[in-house]
Design a protein around this nucleic acid. Sequence first.
DNA 1: TTCACGATTCTA
DNA 2: AGAATCGTGAAG
Length: 213
Amino acid sequence: MTACQQPVIVIASLRFDFFARPAEVVAPELIGCRLVKRQDDGSLLWGVIVETEAYSQDDPACHGYRRRSPQNETLFGEPGRFYVYVSYGIHHCVNVVTDREDWANGVLLRAAALPAEPERIAAGPGLLARRFGLDRTDDSRPVTGEHDLWMAPRPDTFANLDLVTTTRIGISRGETRPWRWYLRSSRSVSRRAPGDRMPARDQCWMPNEEERP
DNA sequence: TTCACGATTCTA
DNA sequence: AGAATCGTGAAG
């Protein structure tokens, strides 16, 4: 044991550079990454992202397509922050801001799978936000924080993951862009592409608690 | 001040 | 397939 021995530095959170790229590049890479929250009692709540969508300012479906406003300001800000908005006056939806400042760009987190929890507890953007207890007060918080709320990289066990690329859900403009991605083997996906059958329960993928970030 | 509209969810 | 529900932005 030498005196100059250094502690091992573990990169627990995705870093700024990861998000400083176009949403349609970041979105598929976010599948398999983990959303992590340290709860008030100190315990760790985490889930694996299994479905994402990309949005960009030059895209009619994007919140920043028409104008910049106090509501969507975060989406125009620096990458690597959460953008949380209210949907249908009831639900909250969680995005991560991507690309660059002054250009509305982000990835909507549409579904997650949580260890030892029902498959569909976070199968949809509103349900995901609900399960993680996220709302407008979390808007603009850094994703790279490593304090209470952060995103952890994909484990190596996800080396070859089978992704489905398809069109986005619930929009009325820009419907044709194939900017939604999901993990085919997961039963926690909000809505499957036409013809893609739900995997059987005994051969689907679920996270286990040992893989805690 | 009023009105129409959802990046949704739940139920039938 | 259809309803519920309400914050937001545009219009008057």
